[in-house]
Design a protein around this nucleic acid. Sequence first.
RNA 1: UGGCCCAUGGUGUAACUGGCUAACACAUCGGUUUUUGGUACCGAAGAGUCUAGGUUCGAAACCUAGUGGGCCAACCA
Length: 667
Amino acid sequence: MSGESKSLNFIEHIIEEDLANGLSKDKLRFRFPPEPNGYLHIGHTKAIGISFGLGEKYKAPVNLRFDDTNPAKEEQEYVDAIKRDIEWLGYKWENELYSSDYFQKLYDWAVQMIKDGRAYVDSQSSEAMAEQKGTPTQVGTNSPYRNRSVEENLDLFQRMKAGEFEAGKHILRAKIDMEDPNMLMRDPIMYRILYAHHHRTGDDWCIYPMYDWTHGESDYIEQISHSLCSLEFKPHRKLYNWFREHVYEYSKEILPLPPKQREFARLNLSYTIMSKRKLLRLVEKGIVTGWDDPRMPTISGLRRRGYTPNSIRKFIEKVGVAKRENVIDVSLLEFCIREDLNKTTNRVMAVLNPVKVIITNYPDDKEEWLEAENNQEDASAGYRKVPFSKEIYIEKEDFKEEAGNKFFRLKLGGEVRLKNAYIIKANSVIKGDNGEVKEIHCSYDTDTSKKVKGTLHWVSVKHAITAEIRVYDRLFSDEAPDSHPDKDFMEFINPNSLKVSTAYLEPSLADAKIGECFQFQRLGYFNIDDDSTPNQLVFNKTVGLRDSWAKQKPKPQNNQNQSKPQQQKRPAISVIKQLGKKYTNLSEEKQLKVKNEIQELAKGVAYDELEPLFGTAVKKAGTRIAVMITLKEMLKSGLEQNNTITEFINKALEDKNELLVNEAKTI
RNA sequence: UGGCCCAUGGUGUAACUGGCUAACACAUCGGUUUUUGGUACCGAAGAGUCUAGGUUCGAAACCUAGUGGGCCAACCA
């Protein structure tokens, strides 16, 4: 028992149950088994968070095991990147291991399996074998080589290993059941011949074990208690268990714990993709600058973008663990990073889209260094000085010649506070030929105790330093870009996912270092990109601040929140059902309103849709009332009354709910 | 046409394993505070738990059927 009151997810329930049934707590052991064929992405952090999180929770070891059985795809670069990312997230593995460490052991067991008649060498083409395999709805047929003698199998397998055959000539298969409804049980391949250089074993082997044979047995060798993976491996469980059962027979004295595999739903994030193969395409096609492009959902991309390990771990915790398909809204990720950065980053002032303000009553060459608080969320962050002078920049967006009183910013004749400085009043503007405001002439007031609605950030023109700012938008314009069977995800690429501009910053930023994070006051969180140099600062926008003002505005051309379509398209009948649910709880006045609504919706309902609802459970009076109202409307507009309808009405007349009876009566 | 898995507010997870008004977080909408239209705080709206039967004093949970979604036919993992 772990004693907390926090609710457990289904995997924790399983573990608690195993513990309660006698599994000793010190036998708990987990693993994270990436294939080193690409970079880790936010989806992997869920798997990482689950297994490493369990390790932390139960103080159990967690192995990092590279599942490196396919030398054709795997590279050392990926091994290094994966280790870097996991470390960065703050997790510690017990052992760094490789499936390739077990090649000899696996081979010995395979020989044993052959001797026991549980595996055989097949010598057909892959096409022929695919044909014999059948389909999900059709059983397979046995290979003509299925009944080779043990001696022949042994001889062939040894010669496969010795490199006597060309690739594809022979394979080793488990002898299970070609008629099993689970395709994975139809004599699955255990070994194939592959003349490829392996990043660890070099050219020692020319036969390589397949995933199913390798993965489960690696778990077993490492004495993993719970082998956790994503849902698509559910069908593999039967095979996992089959292999395990036999190998257990060979080694139970030395390896007493048979591991168990359990599956959870993987993480999907809206407006992005999670497939390594597809991410690789983005890299190769030059859509992004690399695996660590700040727009990528990779861990290295998020890191470069300014996400913190803390925020990602928090995110994974909030997302939860279950077995149903899910799509997590990016807003949750954004919430997590804001929450973290709000507490930790220093506030600074930067103007991204400047317009000049001249303070006419401020002496020409005067300058003052005013005190500014670094972080009001963290008293220990201290203060810094920011320079003030006659000419400053503010954001173009923060000024309007005229505006209503919901606009808290600067307007002609209006006053506004300059953060950490004075209160200014706009008196006049100077415009360029095209009518654009070039300068705003203001007067300042040293009485800062006044109450004014708005506070603006600003930067002194002559003290300002410049920097390149990279602002990112989502990479795809579609909520689930790779879920369209008829369209390629590349069609949804957002051409405006990167905007580069030059900004003016307060001079304290001059010696900021790569990776450092700031809040640009009123704008968002920004960090210094890897491309930054002392001569040319480069900032990434990690995420904007929440902006309740932007939401009220008519809406710029931002593609941020396209209206959610699902509300529009809902069929009338389902809206009616929903309205009905609440009907009996409403005030009389509201009931009338809802009734009108239902009557209106009734026009869009077909009788076929309505009839099934006649059977609605008696206790759901509201739904039945809504159905009755709809029915009445449809009868009015010419629907012919049949027996089913009459029956429904009669049943309603006898109901104990008065509202329903009344509706029925008026038909 | 077979097998397996899944179904709870817009989204994601809970519900002490059959027992209070179905909880929490994000998102949404109000309000208070505020030298960030941020943060913090307070509040509101939103779910008869896919549908229909059944078991039971009692079902989101158990059973049956249906509907919808996902996965499975790589010498990938």
